[in-house]
Nucleic acid binder design. Structure first.
Length: 433
RNA sequence: UCCGCGAUAGCUCAAUCGGCAGAGCAUGCGGCUGUUAACCGCAGGGUUGGAGGUUCAAGUCCUCCUCGCGGAGCCA
């Protein structure tokens, strides 16, 4: 048998005979000429079978091979302008590994979202899903590369936790040797302990929220990267976040141009994603909403989706909104010393209506303040004892943020819904496949 | 949880005032040596989401249920 080649490297094999192992994505029957589009996971290549060039058995097999059968196809790689991708395989041998037993549900024609989601395990084979999930992988790698190269250390935080971070949102409860335990909503609190031990850290992993949210921006299980560092301030956080997000955008632009093209994503928007990002205060954001949107918006209200869209529409790159009302944010956010009704927090709103992709800020380093906040938020003290310890032994100003991977992917790919940004999305009441 | 829309062939959809259940794609068979979501011919394929009701007659009207989609709130 000839060498196994990957389709992504096919140009290197021009003039040579190779074998491709993959699946029949599509085919065209022209009588004594068969065209098969073969996909191997790294790309798609057209395999051309002339009746005279292969054995009668191989030709007959190609004629009746159903869509998504697994195959081995051998032939000479040649440049061919008429073939999609510019190269084709002039087939000399063709074998089936398995003939698909039933009609493949997903055809090159249109399908509804309900049907596609039910067949998510098969939908993953389509070119659009390949483009999105490759970009997801590139985004994750870019984030981790940037953090690793800028002195942050990966420290994974637990998935099973005894208590909620925010205390309010809904948790998935599990049984932990007879006691309740909860799937994590955030690595935040543990990250603070890690930062006091190692200085600059980040965690990266799945988080779980049992919110009854049914929107294009929500998943029950989503991935989040959370940097956290000692001696960091609100401004430090915004500086780090904008550099990291810019690096991600530029990396996707450089490495995933072909995938962005499959998604018909205009790449000029990506070129604009460079520091500095605009920064406005919550107060200023409220002014914008009152002037251009909801005149009845009151200081202290949280932004709704239309409000976030309105704010982000004022800028051509992501915008930080900082100094939110203290009452709106998590108990651990540091209050502004000059103006305690607002806190040293900031969210990053993505352009084009994609909403909040980062939330973060400076954490309170004051023991008495946090004790009072726990009471105010009606949180039990005992599960937070260890967290309060961090303010007893060398407490320092520190900051951090969490970036939602799926929302970032949806924004960069300009997708309608986050459900396509993860291989198997978990959504309200939906856990199949 | 609330508001709105929807469910008809494997898929995407049509069916006029309540009056014979339709098309394209997919599939099967036949034809074609350059197809790009090929094309041409033929064929098979239906408990109209479920339960009940009104009517001479229900895919169509009414009630309840189930499921899905879009949006809101909440959040990353």
């Amino acid at each position: 048998m000839s060498d196994i080649a990957l389709i992504q490297n096919i140009a290197e094999y021009a003039g040579k005979t190779v074998t491709i192992q993959g699946w029949v994505a599509d085919k065209t029957d022209k009588g004594k000429l068969q065209f098969l589009r073969v996909r191997d996971g790294t790309g798609v290549i057209q395999a051309t079978l002339f009746h005279k060039a292969v054995s009668p058995e191989a030709f007959d097999l190609a004629k009746r091979v159903p869509q998504e059968s697994s195959v081995r196809v051998t032939g000479e790689v040649r440049q061919e302008p008429r073939a999609p991708g510019g190269y084709e395989l002039a087939v000399t041998d063709f074998q089936a590994v398995q003939l698909a037993r039933d009609e493949f549900p997903i055809t090159p024609k249109e399908h509804g979202i309900e049907f596609l989601m039910h067949n998510r395990h098969l939908w993953l084979r389509s070119s659009r899903q390949h483009a999105i999930l490759r970009i997801r992988a590139t985004i994750i790698k870019a984030i981790r590369d940037w953090l690793d190269d800028n002195g942050f250390m990966l420290m994974d935080t637990p998935i099973l936790t005894p208590a909620s971070v925010e205390g309010t949102t809904t948790l998935f409860e599990t049984d932990f040797y007879g006691d309740p335990a909860f799937l994590t909503q955030s690595g935040q609190l543990y990250n603070e302990a890690n930062a006091m031990a190692f200085g600059k850290v980040y965690c990266f992993g799945p988080t779980f929220r049992a919110e009854k949210s049914k929107t294009r921006r929500h998943l029950s299980e989503f991935w989040m990267v959370e940097p956290e560092w000692a001696f960091g301030t609100l401004d430090d956080y915004m500086n780090v976040a904008e550099r990291m997000v810019s690096y991600v955008a530029q990396t996707v632009l450089q490495q995933r141009a072909a995938e962005l093209q499959v998604l018909e994503r205009d790449t000029s928007f990506l070129e604009k994603i460079v520091p500095p990002f605009p920064r406005i205060s919550y107060d200023d954001a409220v002014k914008i909403i009152k002037e251009k949107g909801d005149a009845n918006f009151k200081w202290g209200d949280d932004f709704g989706a239309p409000d976030e869209t309105l704010i982000s529409e004022q800028f051509d790159r992501p915008v930080f909104v900082h100094h939110y009302p203290t009452a709106m944010k998590a108990f651990y956010m540091a209050p502004d010393p000059e103006r305690p009704e607002v806190c040293l927090s900031a969210d990053l709103l993505a352009p084009e209506g994609y909403g909040e992709i980062i939330g973060g800020g400076q954490r309170s380093d004051n023991l008495e303040y946090l004790e009072a906040q726990l009471e105010k938020h009606k949180l039990p003290r005992e599960p937070y004892e260890w967290y309060l310890d961090l303010r007893k032994y060398g407490s320092v100003p520190h900051c951090g943020f969490g970036l939602g991977i799926e929302r970032t992917v949806a924004w960069i790919c300009k997708l309608e819904h986050v459900r396509e940004t993860i291989p198997f999305p978990r959504m309200l009441d939906k856990i199949y496949p």
